[in-house]
Design a protein around this nucleic acid. Structure first.
Lengths: 208, 208
DNA sequence: TTTATCTAACTGACTGGTCAGTTATATATT
DNA sequence: AATATATAACTGACCAGTCAGTTAGATAAA
């Protein structure tokens, strides 16, 4: 094994271990995943892995955290360019299929649902650092639009969750039926229809 | 332990084991759940459990299957009384909060998401026997309404999934954040708003 | 440049503990 | 007594985490 001597090389190796761990946790679940397999996937021996992480649980926490920050940053950037509700809906429903297909988010979602209940602190941290912040961005945009009369909704906080629900559905569908050719969903068509239905539900002028 | 001698007593014990297994699989996941704990919860020794199920995997399959049939039957009955789209939306959005709170469906959902990927055949069977049949009922009602002009939607099959998405969201939310008092959602308000938004999205006359 | 020395990254055999599944034994019921 | 049901001690496989030993590769002396 090539040794990681510089700080950068060590950071890279840590990242490789985290990526390998996400794949193993995704495929087998936390309890059934083997530290030796994770190490092997990252091109390292089991003992070497323990130079980077103190325990399986510490590795699990690192997996969840490592994907939190980039997700929020990407989303907050997106929301700044798309200031209005119409642009937000378009951006969300156009990007969603690619994000689902790319696979990293569905994997994190699966690991969170399957294993986070055994680590309540991890789940709560994820909600606070990721979910609440993403929802806050959406809610802020909806609330502004409600005040200007651009849209007509009762509760922006609930509307934000209803907007996001099909993304969770798609992610979960992919997780559970990835192997199942009979169960393919046309994500582009699904989100196109979601977009149309949302605009009608919000009573936006440009709606079909 | 009182012995189960009659067929009915055996069926009851089997059911008790299945219920205990659902709880353990839900709380710990398949791999981390212990057969001894499942047996204990059902008021039986570990050896006794093996009189009713050949293996942990067989028990897992029984758990998934045992909750499939009743769910479909209940839903198909509901759909027969609620023939139109409006009645269907009302029934679905009024019943959903109670179903989520009751907890059995969220537990099954969690077990399916967390562990079914390790048992692809179980996942596929569940899709065919439960999900596809429930969706078919909804799609049938939507298609009829579309033909009579009662509603205006592009694709009933996609609309059915979009209708169901908030139920999955609520179930998953409950699974992941059950312990988390900061994260309570007002399910009644959520589904009331879903109902209003759906009727607008379908361009139904009586919509708000 | 070559060789010797050092050090920290890395390896893999090992340990202690856990748990699915088995079986010898006990007990309730007929 | 005979049979079905249940128990708990047992076995063997498996795996997280450890640690004595190995080696890549840097540094320095010749």
């Amino acid at each position: 094994m090539q040794r990681a001597r510089t700080q950068k090389a060590k950071d890279d190796r840590r990242a490789a271990v985290v990526a390998a761990a996400l794949d193993e946790f995704y495929e087998k679940g936390f309890a059934a995943a083997r530290m030796e397999d994770i190490a092997g996937r990252a091109g390292l021996s089991k003992g070497g892995l323990y130079l980077y992480f103190d325990s399986k649980e510490a590795l699990f926490e690192a997996v969840i955290e490592s994907f939190a920050m980039p997700t929020v940053a990407r989303f907050e950037a997106l929301a700044e360019t798309a200031g209005g509700v119409s642009a937000l809906i378009d951006a969300l429903t156009k990007l969603a299929p690619a994000i689902i297909r790319e696979g990293r988010i569905p994997k994190i979602v699966k690991v969170l649902i399957g294993d986070a209940p055994a680590f309540p602190a991890v789940a709560t941290a994820y909600r606070r650092n990721v979910i609440d912040r993403v929802l806050a961005v959406i809610i802020h945009i909806l609330r502004k639009a409600k005040e200007t009369g651009e849209i007509d909704i009762a509760d922006p906080a609930l509307a934000a969750r209803l907007m996001a629900a099909p993304m969770l559905l798609s992610a979960v569908w992919r997780i559970v039926f990835d192997h199942d050719d009979e169960a393919r969903i046309d994500l582009d068509a699904l989100f196109a229809q979601h977009s149309v239905m949302l605009k009608r539900a919000f009573k936006m002028e440009a709606a079909a």
